[in-house]
């Protein structure tokens, strides 16, 4: 085990995979000489050269489309899109290109690329630099979506994503980059895609959370414990493919579910998890599924306003209590 920050864990994953496989290369805005605006790619251009760590012009649409065909012609590109808010620019490449070819070309091509981006609020970055658009990408069949909440998962999931033969959108969180945590050492320590993780066991209510909301949910679980309520926190971490068994198992135990996601409420990722629970766990539920999400409005700038819209531990506690009432 090594104590690492989330950003350092990502950096280590990139370095190890680039060392292991010469077909892995990185491109994105300001990622080379400067090391990325969140410093995830620090030192990699020096180590691997410009050919494999490219600073690009500001061209998200073409970059993403290029990652798609670079992936199907023998490389494993890892593209950095600086903010999740810029993901709308990448959508044609994801919706109409990356997601279709393996199927419509009858298996003639593979699509091993990773699109890394970071989202989330709480940093005062305002309405165009704070969003979580998880559901927008998770909606697309053929695109995998991953959102690590710890340094260990950041490393293990990124390595799995790079080795995967399908497109993976890898969602980081700007407020997690400095978080420290123990990271298992070893080049081949992977965290598989498609597996959730039970972060805290409990028996009364299951809190299904993603990304930074896992940490808010853990705080909420502490607060609930003080009231004698035992909350289980499940970090979904692989938003798609989704670990349905983990959800079923947890609800079979607790009979109550709260879903927490930083994206907008309507048609959001939490809505999909709620519907999934309805589809597969209805008979195990004692109460309707509760959602804790972002209200359906732009993310405001001023600190008290931004804090008012973000989901947090307090809101998770309230939702849990309501579910159990």
């Amino acid at each position: 085990m090594a104590l690492m920050r989330y950003a350092e864990a990502l950096n280590a994953a990139l370095r190890e995979e680039m060392t292991r496989d010469p077909s892995v290369f990185l491109f994105g805005e300001d990622i080379g000489r400067y090391g990325g605006v969140f410093k995830v790619t620090r030192g990699l251009q020096e180590e691997f050269g410009f050919n494999r760590v490219r600073d690009t012009p500001i061209s998200e649409q073409a970059m993403t489309a290029m990652a798609v065909t670079a992936a199907m012609t023998g490389t494993r590109p890892v593209l950095e899109i600086m903010y999740a808010d810029f993901m709308p620019l990448t959508l044609d490449a994801l919706v109409n290109q990356a997601s279709i070819y393996e199927y419509i070309w009858n298996g003639q091509v593979k699509m091993p690329f990773v699109l890394r981006t970071q989202g989330g609020g709480g940093a005062g970055a305002a309405a165009q630099h704070s969003k979580s658009l998880d559901s927008m990408v998770a909606h697309i069949p053929g695109i995998k979506v991953v959102a690590p909440s710890t340094p260990a998962d950041a490393k293990g999931l990124l390595k799995s994503a790079i080795r995967d033969d399908q497109p993976v959108v890898f969602l980081e969180h700007k407020l997690l980059y400095n978080m420290r945590g123990e990271v298992p050492e070893g080049d081949d320590v992977l965290v598989p895609l498609g597996a959730a993780s039970v972060t805290r066991e409990g028996t009364d209510v299951s809190i299904f959370a993603t990304s930074r909301m896992v940490h808010e949910s853990l705080k909420a679980a502490d607060a609930l414990a003080e009231r004698g309520i035992s909350a289980e926190v499940v970090d979904l971490r692989s938003l798609k493919p989704l670990d349905l068994n983990a959800i079923k198992k947890s609800i079979a135990k607790t009979n109550n579910a709260v879903v927490v996601n930083e994206g907008w409420n309507f048609c959001g990722y939490a809505a999909e998890i709620s519907a999934t629970i309805m589809d597969f766990c209805f008979d195990d539920l004692d109460a309707p599924v509760a959602r804790v999400t972002m209200p359906d409005m732009p993310i405001p700038y001023s600190e008290p306003l931004e804090m008012a819209v973000l989901p947090n531990a307090e809101k998770i506690v309230a939702a849990s209590l309501q579910t159990l009432a």
């Binding site: 489309a65 065909t69 670079a70 992936a71 012609t73 490389t75 590109p77």
Partner: peptide, 23 residues
């Protein structure tokens, strides 16, 4: 690889394959 019916999409598509050749 291949036909593409999103007008304009073949342009970055071919550019990406060229990038892969260069890398």
């Amino acid at each position: 690889i291949g036909g593409n019916a999103i007008v304009g999409a073949s342009i970055p598509a071919a550019t990406g394959a060229a990038l892969s050749n260069q890398v």
